[in-house]
Design a protein around this nucleic acid. Structure first.
Lengths: 229, 229
DNA sequence: CGCGCTATTGATCGGGATCAAGGTAAGTGG
DNA sequence: CCACTTACCTTGATCCCGATCAATAGCGCG
């Protein structure tokens, strides 16, 4: 594995305060793998043998039931995923597939749990990370249950806008149909909702989104830190 | 506080493996309070000063946005709630109200965090509990996004049935309108959905639900361990 | 180019919401 | 013990958001 990756991983909240010894213990047993796009990395229900860290590319977390499928999250570098299943040694609840060619580090779950009980700082970081994830899903649930599809889209655009350093022009980092699924709507409905938002300060051309009237969009979206973070 | 309560709390997964010393440290700073029904214990956005433990009564966790409100969970004794906010020292993301007269133990968040970093077993238990909560909300999200309202109701009845030792007759432990809100539907729609389920092995009289044909209900609900636990 | 995939647009359908009355059951007080 | 109240639930009528189905339009890429 390139040194560059090591350094980046080391800087993740999860590992930054880790003892060197613990960190190398984790890395010693780790696999560094490259995957092509559209590979199913994880099938929900599988036992959680590895903690995954995405170092380049993109990964979709999704779930299937009875011929239906929904996107639960999109993971971008550098970040870990499916920590909760790893810690509890239970089956994964989400499936994962690469969206692009991706580099992924696989750390055996037993190693994670071993270091967790040896290194207090790691335990601390894991708790914070799990709590953060938990709160993220709670926000998602509130978003789904309290808002209409167009309100969800409007607020999501505001979140992206904030994340992009508040530039009024941004590029959607995923296909629209995945965005639609993530927001709990169909691709068709997303399209129509975008045209609806044209009256509320949003212009769309392909994956480019221009927020031409932030005030209008905010008035429509009514964002709150208790949902949108 | 009655000794009986102490013992019951001690048996919670979160506290059972705790050193006596740690447990008393937590209890020393704790408040034991009684609340009448319909009292708002927590307003989302408040800072998370206390970990709450419900020892009798019932508490609803809910959220509001723009004049809409949704039930996120109902808590029954004996259990803790809002652990994640406590650990991260961030604002609560859910509001809470008593549904009945309730006894609640309030443990200052700083004490919880202090004991967490002193007592390895407690740290362990907290991680497991957080991961469990996280996975619970992931299931909720999948349920909301992958299933229709009637499928959610059918599966929820199966969950209650399982929880009630698989007796074919059970009593709904909450008002129907709260169940409706929890399942992400209106009270009216819940009513109609119950009549729909009459053709699928379910009889309802008030809060009494009789599963007259488990096979039929299961065929309709198609439960899966990856959503329904 | 032309093939294949994604996005848009249009027409229609349906699940679930909303609005508006009734019904039912459990208190409450005379 | 029974009228009256009140809260919850049900039922009916209608509406609308968003899904579905179908066709077309872009776009990226070999």
């Amino acid at each position: 594995m390139p040194q560059k990756n090591f350094d980046e991983i080391r800087e993740l909240d999860l590992f930054s305060k880790l003892k060197d010894e613990s960190f190398s213990k984790l890395m010693r047993g780790a696999y560094f793998k490259q995957f092509p796009p559209q590979i199913e990395l994880i099938d929900e229900g599988d036992s959680a043998d590895f903690l995954h860290i995405l170092t380049s590319g993109a990964v979709e977390l999704f779930s299937r039931w009875e011929n239906r499928e929904t996107t639960l999250a999109t993971v971008f570098p550098i970040s870990t995923f499916i920590l909760a299943a790893t810690m509890t040694d239970l089956a994964y609840l989400m499936s994962a597939r690469t969206l692009e060619k991706s580099q992924i580090i696989l750390i055996p779950s037993e190693d994670v749990r071993a270091v967790f009980s040896e290194d207090r700082d790691f335990a601390n970081a894991i708790v914070l990370e799990l709590a953060r994830c938990y709160r993220g899903v709670v926000r998602t649930t509130k978003n789904l249950k309290l808002r209409s599809a167009s309100e969800r889209l409007a607020n999501h655009l505001l979140v992206l806008h904030k994340r992009m350093d508040r530039r009024n022009s941004l590029t959607l980092p995923y296909e629209k149909r995945r965005l639609a699924s993530y927001l709990g709507m169909t691709a068709e409905n997303l399209s129509r909702t975008f045209t609806l938002l044209a009256e509320n300060g949003v212009e769309v051309h392909g994956k480019e989104v221009v927020i031409s009237d932030l005030g209008k969009l905010e008035a429509f979206a009514r964002p709150t830190s208790l949902i949108d973070g």
